[in-house]
Amino acid sequence: MSEKKCSDSSCTKESCSSCSKAKVDFSVAPHPLSHVKKVIGVVSGKGGVGKSMVTSLSAVAMQKAGYKTGILDADITGPSIPKAFGIEGRAFGNEEGIVPVKSKGGIDVMSINLLLQNPTDPVIWRGPVIANMVKQFWSDVVWADVDYLFVDMPPGTGDVPLTVFQSLPLDGILIVTSPQELVSMVVAKAVKMAEQMNIPILGLIENFAYFHCPDNGKDYEIFGKSHIETVALEHRLPVLAKLPIDPALANACDEGRIEEASFDLSLYAGVIGALKQLLG
């Protein structure tokens, strides 16, 4: 590991007016053959908010918009990306590195389930081993010509999110929430972690915001009244999308047809716009 030098030329580790000690650089170099323009983390303060579905839909939306996308599944103990895309093959390596598996629509995917003999086998590893695997998904996998690489992270602020924040060159993160009272607390945790790590926050995505009844055309707030606008205002963040509960979309994920599912791209307009701005 290398150390970042302080901007103060007179800095010493023992005494410095700018910092108390040199900062350690945990960044990991990508594979020499990789070419990734933007790396986007998809995070949530708690589980069960549909973060992996949002990751999948974001990749599909940008792919449909004409960009080359990939997904690094960093949720090592709860991987669900391959199932959503109906990927049953296994990733393989050659003399150059590990080759991600392509979905039917051409999205590059790398997940621990693509390396296991049986995808239902549990991954019973300690935190440091899991964190190292995530780093290898960046350093040993050949991500060739990818415009947007989405990193699906496990919920919370534990080892893996910390590893991704420190080791991967994140250009921004999307924070996925749900319309519940405690959302303000869990979002605050994710926001503060990103701020402490100097990671740009692109905005908030509220999932399960409402259910649109096809029989009477009314919207019902199944999980309670939304608090996303208040949370966004408190942290000075944009709300990029408010996504409805869609049973058809959930079934498509379960059946491995996320790329074939019909969903309203206009609901993703804010997300697509924020991501396009990163490329200029």
Rank of each mutant, 00 (worst) to 15 (best):
M1R: 13
S2I: 10
E3Q: 13
K4H: 10
S7H: 09
D8A: 07
E14Y: 12
S15N: 14
C16R: 01
S17R: 11
S20R: 09
K23H: 05
K23I: 11
S27R: 15
P30C: 02
P30F: 06
P32D: 10
L33D: 14
S34G: 12
S34N: 12
H35D: 13
V36E: 00
I40C: 01
I40N: 07
G41D: 08
G45K: 07
S52Y: 02
S52K: 03
L57M: 15
S58I: 00
S58Y: 05
A59S: 15
A59Q: 03
V60R: 09
M62S: 09
Q63I: 00
K64C: 07
A65D: 13
A65R: 14
G70D: 08
I71L: 12
I71A: 06
L72V: 03
A74P: 05
A74K: 08
T77D: 10
T77G: 03
G78H: 00
P79T: 05
P79W: 03
P82V: 03
K83E: 13
A84S: 14
G86A: 04
G86F: 06
I87P: 11
G93N: 04
N94R: 07
V99N: 15
S103D: 03
I107E: 02
D108T: 04
M110D: 12
S111V: 10
L114K: 00
L114E: 01
L114C: 06
N118P: 03
T120N: 13
T120E: 15
V123R: 05
W125G: 08
R126K: 12
G127N: 11
G127T: 07
P128K: 08
I130K: 15
V134D: 06
Q136C: 13
D145A: 08
V146S: 03
D147A: 01
D147F: 11
Y148M: 02
D152I: 01
M153F: 05
P154C: 09
G158Y: 04
D159C: 04
D159S: 03
F165H: 14
T177G: 02
S178G: 11
L182S: 01
M185E: 14
V186D: 15
V187E: 05
V187T: 15
V187N: 09
K189W: 06
A190Y: 08
V191L: 00
M197Y: 04
N198T: 10
P200D: 14
E206C: 00
N207C: 08
F211G: 01
C213W: 03
P214H: 11
D215L: 11
K218G: 01
Y220C: 09
Y220D: 13
F223R: 04
K225W: 00
K225Y: 02
S226C: 07
V231M: 00
A232N: 05
L233I: 05
E234T: 15
R236L: 06
L237F: 11
P238K: 04
P238M: 07
L240T: 07
K242R: 14
K242T: 13
L243Y: 10
I245R: 07
P247L: 12
L249P: 08
N251C: 06
A252I: 08
A252F: 11
D254F: 05
E255C: 04
G256N: 12
E259T: 07
E259R: 08
S262Y: 08
S262W: 03
F263R: 09
D264A: 09
L265I: 12
S266Q: 15
S266T: 14
L267F: 05
A269C: 00
G270T: 01
G270R: 07
V271A: 05
G273T: 13
G273L: 04
L275P: 05
L275W: 06
L279R: 11
L279W: 02
